[in-house]
Design a protein around this nucleic acid. Sequence first.
DNA 1: TTGTACGCGTTATCAT
DNA 2: ATGATAACGCGTACAA
Lengths: 344, 344
Amino acid sequence: MAANRSATGRTVTSKDVARVAGVSQSTVSYVMSGKRPISERTRRIVEDAIAQLTYHPNAGARALASQRTQIIAVVMPFDSGLGATGLMAFIEEITLAARARDHDVLLVTAEEGVDGLRRVAGRALCDAVVLMEVATDDPRAAIARELRVPTLFIGFPDDAAGLHCIDFDFEEGARLLVGELAGAGRVTALTWGPGTVDRGLNYVPRFRTAAHEAAVAAGVALDWVPLERDRIEEQVRAVLASGTQALLVTAHLNRVVHAVQEAGLRPGTDLDLVALATDVEATGFTVPLTAVSTHPRDVSRQAMTWLFELLEQGTGPAQVRRVPAFVSRRSSVRPGTTPHVPQP
Amino acid sequence: MAANRSATGRTVTSKDVARVAGVSQSTVSYVMSGKRPISERTRRIVEDAIAQLTYHPNAGARALASQRTQIIAVVMPFDSGLGATGLMAFIEEITLAARARDHDVLLVTAEEGVDGLRRVAGRALCDAVVLMEVATDDPRAAIARELRVPTLFIGFPDDAAGLHCIDFDFEEGARLLVGELAGAGRVTALTWGPGTVDRGLNYVPRFRTAAHEAAVAAGVALDWVPLERDRIEEQVRAVLASGTQALLVTAHLNRVVHAVQEAGLRPGTDLDLVALATDVEATGFTVPLTAVSTHPRDVSRQAMTWLFELLEQGTGPAQVRRVPAFVSRRSSVRPGTTPHVPQP
DNA sequence: TTGTACGCGTTATCAT
DNA sequence: ATGATAACGCGTACAA
């Protein structure tokens, strides 16, 4: 029999459960919420009736009465600097975390921008919002500050005042990667292209600035090369032809490594290559790559933990949190180009 | 000012709009729905009040009163035979299609299985359901047949009676790919591994059966090799060592092509390689691959069009729809191994 | 063309 | 420990 429908097709309500159980409707409600003591006997009777009728509480009615939707809105880009794998990892973790607390996930496209936020919050479609793909100068920041619902930014807008932000520590990641190549003298960063940069994604300048500072400190020359989707192979060839022996890759890893191999070069043997990538990406090649992992799963898990704290304990003080970065040394860097410092 | 909140923090309701506009609450409702004629004058007044108060209708209340949530539930796998890129393409199209009709998308993990379906339908969390990652013997089929809400399967369970199903034409795709290699005498299919097969995904046997039939008809010997995540490179080497000159790849394309190139072989020159893959995947290599594209975007677009028809015109007759398959001939097959038939 | 009034299915506050 | 009952905010039949 269909869930929440009687044999006659009518919707099963808590009233029906009450009738079958021979109790009042409010008792049914309290049995479900556990918000007041119920005798063992009635609880059993009610629970049996619930099971027998396959009763499910109506989400709309519940939301209306309780001012809680049990829904988390996730504002997500479809084309991100993270790549599809990273994105999926994010939303998978977010969804699992939400379900673990009996919440559901509503998907909102980042393309909706400011209006999307207004809509889901204004219509009371959700209890909280998670925002990805944060821009340096993100117009949604202003809105979030006045929103009815707690809003969590994954990423740091320039003005994070009054906001709850969490992100991977791209700055430390940059320092670590440059550190791995400190003995190279000259390093070329193959990085996010115009598509990503134009959207003003916050982590690009964060990474770039930190990388340049670390390069200066280590005494290496750092070239910054944004990869253009249509000419990546060409760009890689040019870079290799220029004599660079050390590559720091933050985007389009697959195609870069491909192109390097096409050129007859092997990371860890003929040149040094480090990457900012997920672990699966870094280990998916013939030569496993020394890399800093962005750990999208850790970030989203911590984000959700925080979000539910805000939800349960009332919206806490604004704060910016960083998820620590680590290097995984594998075999894409030749011994000697990394100065002898203990692996963090 | 925060959306749907007055300066005092109270929620803005249609009653407030009515008061400001000097009309009754029902008039506000009718202005929004357009379900009865409204004089130009009142419409203007009401719309001004709505804008002034930044009024947004409460989703829960609306759902309760109208029995419509304006939400589509999408039951999605996180680890699919499609890969992250294919999945993202699916949910992007679905979300865009939903938004284009003023609906939102609720994400449900396939892991929730039967319970997930029961929950979203039972709680009236959504108006319709889209189901991906359909198994040959899918337990959700039985439930879907009795559900309150229209349910669309992307994929064909063995018993599709009474269901609405749509999918890419994997059978025709298999025939086309085998056809491209018909002159090869012997073909090895590098295909979905145990992880995918174990879940009983419907398209695996659909593709396999059609491929074998086409092979028999064309007089070629077809080896079927499920790829195991941990030994793909090894498997590819073994296959190449066995002397196969023609590869038909349906999974892990990236790693397979990698391994082939590592072996010093070049598709289109030293051997023939065709793939079942998205266009971006097929063209992302040094040698663009002859491939049948699964066109996830087409499939989901058509699925959503159908779904909204069901939603608007009442749930129509059960039906199975196929999205046609085409080959894109590129340069990974040597001239001569494809018999001279005009490209479809 | 517009207003009145009821119901949608819960939660939660009074009572008892 | 349990039962009535008033919101919650919107849609819509019925009146005017």
